[in-house]
Nucleic acid binder design. Structure first.
Lengths: 226, 226
DNA sequence: TTTAGAATTATTGTCGACAAAGTTGCTATT
DNA sequence: AATAGCAACTTTGTCGACAATAATTCTAAA
């Protein structure tokens, strides 16, 4: 899926089911806001209800579904408000991640990050609009991992990022903002390279804020079109 | 336990067991770093292994235990590094919470917050060293709730805060810093009251950083004493 | 016709048993 | 005596059945 790491190796049946379901939710195959029937899913994914229940619990910890006792689970709904809330958290956590990355990334890792940036540049130059998704995700992933803070990594990669992807995929975030985003990435790397924690955090926060505004614009345009 | 809200009403058996276990882990009745045997816990809490498993899963989402496939779960270990990582996340999230609280709290809520502060002041004046725990937690809770951001609230209250408490309880955080902290609280409320988002965030971040340094000091003193 | 209540149906929660994987300790060979 | 491999045992993972709770339907009274 995305280049660097397929870290999560599913060993147990619940693992696999969880990952499948998560994909189906993010991609919209299981529609946002819909109710999840354990029995139904059990036949659909060919596993017992026990593993479905475990999968649902894990999805709940990613904030991809919401569970209510004795009532059941529903897929989270997508809304402009939800998007804003999500990005506020993202801004906060990734800002900190950038700060810590500036502090904790090895020179080697920073070198690789610059290398990645060069690859992106070539893609942008060649105006292959490839860039957007995978590249951007890759960039952010490296910085998050560079923070070396396990809590942060877990919250972002196992939690928030799938919801972010869900918004991106289902609201069709392709859009421009490519070259702009590239410059922002470049400046962030520069700050990290200079070990300027403050600046790295600030730039990352701005970068994410801009990105949110970009999505919001599309969201409202989408609305007006109807 | 803490004054404002006993929001989490346990309806199902797994809920209750989860809450009991969480308490036992935070209090140290189940010792940090120890392995959790499902069978053992099953007899201890008088419920089936299924509900123990569910409870353990939820504990894992709070980062209170770590699960490995086909091997089992162990209670998280307490370490200086872990504490630092935890507080970095806390700084980031609660900073954002304070910022959003400055934006989103109603004048009424702000009034109540000031009221709370007055109560604390009386306690501090009368040199009842009551203050520390409950009061501080209460203060932070209100601001977090004041952010009106459901992700933030969930991450902090259902997640991080129990781990924070675990450190506090098990490393015996009583300590001074009472009057100092009180002034910091006052300034934060002041910033929120003035709707100064930037300042509120900055002050909250500092407040948490100081608090971490305070704990760290004790941790190292503790170490040297041995 | 509408609504309150009871009976029925469907869905989630809990349980004990079995399957699969991991761990430990023994045996045999070098 | 040390180690590799096998066997017994322990622990976690998965399953289907039953219990408890919520949703629905039907009936009866206003």
């Amino acid at each position: 899926m995305n280049s660097i790491f397929e870290t999560e190796q599913a060993v147990t049946s619940a693992d696999k089911t969880f990952i499948k379901m998560r994909g189906d939710i993010v991609e919209g195959n299981i529609v946002a806001g819909s109710k999840l029937s354990e029995a139904e899913l059990s036949t659909k994914y060919q596993v017992s209800r026990a593993v479905i229940r475990e999968a649902i619990n894990r999805l709940a910890t990613c904030h991809l579904v919401e569970r209510k006792a004795n009532i059941g689970a529903r897929v989270v709904g997508l809304s402009p408000e939800g998007l804003v809330e999500l990005y506020q958290v993202r801004e906060s956590l990734e800002g900190m991640a950038a700060r810590l990355a500036a502090k904790n990334m090895s020179v080697d890792e920073i070198g690789q990050l610059k290398e990645l940036l060069n690859q992106h540049y070539e893609k942008v130059e060649g105006s292959e609009s490839y860039y957007q998704e995978a590249g951007d995700v890759d960039f952010h992933y490296r910085i998050i991992l560079g923070s070396k803070n396990s809590h942060l990594i877990s919250l972002l990669l196992n939690g928030i990022y799938h919801l972010v992807r869900m918004y991106r995929v289902q609201l069709g975030m392709a859009g421009p903002r490519v070259s702009t985003a590239f410059d922002e990435h470049k400046n962030i790397v520069s700050a990290i390279s200079n070990r300027d924690e403050e600046l790295a955090e600030m730039l990352m926060r701005r970068h994410i804020t801009y990105s949110m505004r970009n999505i919001q614009t599309k969201l409202t345009n989408e609305k007006n079109r109807r």
